[in-house]
Structures are given as C-alpha cells and as structure tokens.
C-alpha cells in the first residue's frame, strides 16, 4: 500500500508510482525447454529477491530493487 521504492534517479518514492516488472530473470535461455522454465516458472522466493520496477510516474526507467517478499522490506 504505502511501500516505498528506492529509485536511483528520483530517491525513495511510493510504490504506486511504479509498475512492477517481476523478479529478475535471465534475458534469454538457450533452448525452448529452459526458456519455458525461465518465463513460466518464477522462483517466487519467500524472502529476498531481486526485482525490476519501472518508474512509470517518475524517470520512466527500469530499476533493480532487492525486496523481501515476506516483510516487504526494500533496499
């Protein structure tokens, strides 16, 4: 709700300014089967994970965020 996200360009901003881009995954996979796992089977970690966020209502850049999915603590 009021989660705040550290944007390297804009500082700490409310998460509502961002679009969530999901967990950070490799940009491509060598073959069709491993690509399926890459796209459709996210780690969905209970704990810290690297995520991409798009600062839609700010600098309009993608940023990398470390978020703990159990506590929502962000850094």
């Amino acid at each position: 709700m009021a989660l705040r996200v550290p944007c390297p360009n804009c500082g700490w901003r409310p998460s509502t300014e961002f679009a969530w881009g999901g967990e950070l995954r490799p940009v491509e996979a060598p073959d069709v089967e491993s690509d399926f796992a890459r796209v459709f089977l996210p780690e969905n970690a209970a704990g810290e994970q690297a995520e991409r966020w798009f600062h839609l209502l700010g600098c309009r850049r993608w940023i990398l965020v470390q978020r703990d999915t159990t506590t929502n603590r962000v850094r």
Binding site: A19, G21, V27, R52, F54, L56, R60, R61, W62
Partner: peptide, 23 residues
C-alpha cells in the same frame, strides 16, 4: 503507450543495445 515504452526500455537495458528510446 506506457506498456510499450516499458517494454522497449526493458529490452534495450537488459540486452545491452546501444539505442535510445525517445517517447
């Protein structure tokens, strides 16, 4: 438009293309 911009910037960033996306 917003989604398209995000998509283009995402591909440009992550694949390391030397390209500017001008909205």
């Amino acid at each position: 438009a917003d989604r398209m911009e995000g998509w283009l910037r995402d591909r440009a960033d992550r694949c390391g293309f030397r390209a500017h996306v001008v909205d």
